[in-house]
Simulated scan of single mutants.
Amino acid sequence: MAQWLYRIVPTRPEMVADPTADEQRIVSAHFRYLVDLKERGVLILAGRTQEHADTFGITIFEADDEAAARAVMDGDPAVAAGVFAASLHPYAVAVARDGLAGS
Rank of each mutant, 00 (worst) to 15 (best):
F84R: 01
V27N: 14
E66S: 06
M1A: 06
R97Q: 13
A17R: 15
A86N: 01
G47T: 07
D64S: 11
D22C: 11
A46G: 02
R12T: 05
R48N: 15
D74F: 06
P19A: 12
P90F: 00
L34F: 01
A29Y: 03
V79S: 12
D36L: 08
A17S: 08
D64V: 06
G41F: 07
L34W: 05
E62Y: 01
A67F: 01
A67Q: 12
V72A: 05
D22T: 10
Q3K: 01
L43V: 06
S87P: 00
P90H: 02
V27T: 15
V93P: 01
W4E: 01
R70V: 00
E14H: 09
L34A: 08
L37P: 08
A69Q: 04
I8T: 09
V83S: 08
I58D: 05
T20S: 15
R7V: 14
Q24F: 04
E14L: 11
I60Y: 02
D98E: 05
A78Q: 07
S87T: 13
A81W: 00
M15E: 13
E66G: 01
F84V: 00
V27W: 15
V35W: 06
M15P: 14
M1W: 11
R70D: 02
V72W: 09
A68W: 11
P19V: 04
S87H: 02
A69N: 09
